[in-house]
Design a protein around this nucleic acid. Structure first.
Length: 183
DNA sequence: CATGGGATTGACT
DNA sequence: GTCAATCCCATGC
């Protein structure tokens, strides 16, 4: 599953004609206190146990939607959280939704990303492999991927399942490699 | 039925 | 660097 997270880096994700290159992902699996599926199968987590290639959209802190891709066969709960994109397509529409911002602020975070693309809870359980979603395998050469501890969660945050495109300015705040202050 | 937690962001000191 | 906002869902009484 972590292979999936790694391979997603560099792929192009589009939603209704807006999107860009995936530059940051995070993997979650059932045996992981930070994963929603950890509590077992419920109405909320049903998607995570379902077939791969579907979206799991979760609203965090009542304000921000987080986009996940189900990454394991039916029966196994695992997902890859899409944390950041390098916007390449539909910049105008993203700016309409997010306001006038530098490119690197448009999708540099899970909540920003969903807002920019117009993804909300309505997209929960949506099939990522069909309209209005579009995933392009790889838009060129495979970028260098950096693995690091996960960010912004309170449980098992130290598991090294965070994948970033090396040196990309489009990843969210604590960038690996920079001596930036802890969150 | 009521309560608490959660994978975040943005504004203010 | 620190703090508050805000909604859905799972759990507990």
């Amino acid at each position: 599953m972590h292979e999936v997270a790694r391979e997603l880096i560099g792929c192009t994700l589009l939603f209704e004609g807006c999107g860009g290159i995936v530059v940051e992902t995070e993997s979650y699996e059932a045996d992981d206190p930070a994963c929603h599926a950890y509590v077992g199968l419920t109405d909320r987590t049903r998607v995570l146990f379902g077939p791969p290639g579907h979206a799991y959209v979760y609203l965090s802190y009542g304000i921000h939607s987080l986009l996940n891709a189900v990454a394991e066969p039916e029966g196994q709960a695992a997902a890859v959280l899409i944390r950041a994109l390098q916007p390449t397509t539909g910049l105008e529409r993203m700016r309409e939704r997010r306001g006038e911002r530098p490119d690197q602020d448009l999708c540099s975070g899970p909540g920003k990303l969903t807002e920019a693309l117009g993804i909300g809870l309505e997209q929960n359980e949506a099939d990522l492999c069909s309209e209005p979603f579009l995933i392009a395998p790889l838009a060129g050469e495979r970028p260098e991927v950096v693995v690091g501890p996960r960010i912004g969660i309170t449980k098992a945050a130290d598991r090294p399942w965070r994948f970033c495109a090396a040196g990309s300015p489009y990843v969210s705040r604590p960038r690996p490699g920079t001596g930036a202050s802890r969150r």
